[in-house]
Write a protein that binds this DNA or RNA. Structure first.
Length: 349
DNA sequence: CATCCACCGGAAATGTTGGGAC
DNA sequence: GTCCCAACATTTCCGGTGGATG
């Protein structure tokens, strides 16, 4: 453990959420965002939909922006991986506009009414990160409400490439009409630069070989994954992070990334993912099937002394893992299999 | 062409939690 | 304290799904 102190001077820059003083990359996008939002301040309402693969900087960009927003504007960041229901999201929003906390047990209509009364002329910005989780779990009631409430500007963040058209009702889409902003994955050079900057802020000088960063950057274009990996390497290394250090910590870095992704979810999500991983390693074929996965999941529950959830519920959890892009679960029709899903683990690298 | 496979996913049912009215 | 209500997680129920098989 003491080895950690040897290299890392400041943990913060190695965390995904860290916002460097200079947000050099993606200036153009930040300008776009800026102009759209100032436009919104003038015209009343304008909504954005930022979409792109994991680790392409969606959340980061928005949070950097919120940080620059004048304090006169109410901003509300809602991570839908945590707030999966309309009520939980409204609670957050209620808190930002009234500064009071509210417990469960109220009617959503009451919260909505109260929020509306307090938002007149204040035009808060509501960010719904990972909106797909809320949509999958609770439908689009919240989005409909937000789109109908004049003074609220929304920024939606989604990993799905398509726009929201297939997941939301027509009436919601027509009044929301979010402006799509695509985020392309970073290039290896981008990743290299980002890691370099974070390393400079976090690590002691001379503690890092360039080849180490090159190796990470050539392996993944997912910033979050890359940072977890670098952090793991930094924790392992006693004096300097070499190319070998990162090669050795490849697996544990990946593991850390996944742990953080799954953190907001339940133990059953973890068990389910474990079941899928184990089965994938054991079988030769590319894909595995829901039935086998559920069986393995039940076995794992037994060993960990957990009461297994129903397969209907697990079917939803598979969707969650899919939304996190940890697995792919495409439909398979026909054969002796009927309609089922073919599950495969996303390699990440 | 009917039937079957092996699961999908919508809808209703159940159980729990917390609020408010009385 | 009692009663009823809404929100929510989870289970139960059940009508699909479409190629393979006979």
């Amino acid at each position: 453990m003491n080895d950690t102190d040897a290299i890392i001077e400041d943990f913060a820059p190695l965390k995904t959420q860290y916002i460097p003083s200079e947000f050099a990359d993606r200036d153009d996008l930040q300008n776009t965002l800026q102009s759209l939002i100032s436009q919104a301040e003038e015209t009343g309402s304008r909504n954005l939909l930022i979409h792109g693969p994991p680790g392409s900087g969606k959340t980061h960009l928005v949070q950097a922006h919120l940080k620059d927003t004048p304090t006169t504007v109410n901003t509300c960041y809602i991570p839908c991986t945590h707030c999966k229901t309309q009520y939980q999201a409204l609670k957050q929003l209620y808190h930002t506009v009234t500064d009071e906390t509210v417990n469960d047990g109220h009617h959503t209509a009451d919260l909505k009414r109260e929020i509306e009364e307090r938002t007149h002329a204040t035009s808060p910005i509501v960010v719904l990160d990972d909106i797909d989780f809320l949509l999958q779990n609770d439908g689009n009631d919240l989005l409909y409400y937000l789109s109908r409430t004049n003074d609220i500007n929304t920024i939606l963040i989604s990993t799905k490439r398509q726009s929201l058209e297939d997941t939301i009702e027509e009436r919601t889409r027509s009044s929301l009409q979010p402006q799509p902003i695509p985020m392309e994955p970073y290039t290896p050079e981008d990743i290299y630069q980002i890691l370099l900057q974070r390393a400079q802020d976090a690590l002691k000088p001379q503690s890092l070989h360039r080849e180490a960063l090159t190796y990470i950057a050539s392996t993944t274009t997912n910033t979050s994954l890359a940072l977890h990996w670098l952090k793991t390497a930094a924790e392992q290394a006693s004096q300097t992070i070499t190319e070998n250090t990162v090669k050795d910590t490849r697996e544990s870095g990946r593991r850390k990334y996944i742990d953080e992704l799954l953190h907001p979810f339940t133990d059953h999500h973890q068990l389910l993912y474990q079941a899928i991983q184990e089965l994938t390693e054991e079988t030769d074929s590319e894909t595995i099937q829901t039935g086998a996965v559920y069986q393995r999941y039940q076995e794992l529950c037994k060993t960990y002394n957990e009461e297994p959830l129903s397969n209907r519920r697990i079917s939803d959890y598979i969707k969650h893992l899919e939304l996190l892009q940890l697995i792919k679960a495409d439909y398979h029709y026909g054969g002796t299999k009927g309609k089922t899903r073919e599950i495969r683990v996303n390699k990440l690298f």
